[in-house]
Amino acid sequence: MAFHRVGAGGGMSLPLIRTLVDRLVGGLIVLCVSVAAIPVLVLLLFVLINGLPGMLTPGFFTDPPYPQGVPGGGVLNAIIGTLEIVGIGSLLAVPVGALIGIFLSEYGRNQVGNTVRFISDVFTGLPSIAFGIFGYTVVVLTTHHFSALSASIALAVLMLPVILRATETALVLVPNSLREAGLALGAPRWRVTLEIIVPAALGGIVTGALLAMARAAGETAPLLFTAFGNDIVQTNPWQPMGALSLTIFRNALVPYPNLQQQAWAAGLLLVALVAATNILARIYVRRIQR
């Protein structure tokens, strides 16, 4: 019936209703996006306003923190610490995580794979302090001192499930025909996986790794009793080391305005670092897909 009316070109009302519904739904979507985006934007603005003055103080990037009463001081110790701790953590987690992800995708359609997946999901749900306890018990208590390395190990375990799941997802998305094409040439399974499937999924794997690194960089709890913090610029991974998240955590709780300002600035720097990592991941993926 309706079909007939439209066909006859008689109903102007119908396109009108369609337009209205279209507008309405479009408006709703914009509203929902705003509701999700506004808090994030407000937060970013807040961090920017509070953090920028501290960031612009001379020495913020180049000096270690000075104690109360000594003018100046920065977060050089924390910048180096965050980069080194997360860097070493990634060196540990990315290869292992990627290999487990490859195993799950290519050889893991079985009980072993399901068990690994289950354990990984449990790990994803653990509060991050648990990884700190892990680093503390396994490394700090056995070596009898706090160290950046123990923090890297804690963060590596925290990053592992993110990386292996990202790798698995990226590999599963590679069309099966590509595997068959490789195998049909008489290539052994492992060569097809490493030479064809992994390169095809590299964008997803790298993105997963970068996102895991960004998450690790923002963690405080796993560092408290592993990296421990250090106001002295330290590059030796066997020694206690500062980190941006620790600077924020500690300085936010002291009554001194200059240290609080430093905490805000460290927060802004951390947000910037994480944002830069995410943007890098996107640029890389776009590059690779072209």
Partner: peptide
């Protein structure tokens, strides 16, 4: 099987260019 596939080549209905 690997040797067999080296003997019997196969081209598929759809092309599958490798990411190379």
């Amino acid at each position: 099987v690997i040797n067999l596939r080296r003997q019997v080549g196969m081209l598929f209905q759809r092309a599958n260019p490798f990411p190379k």
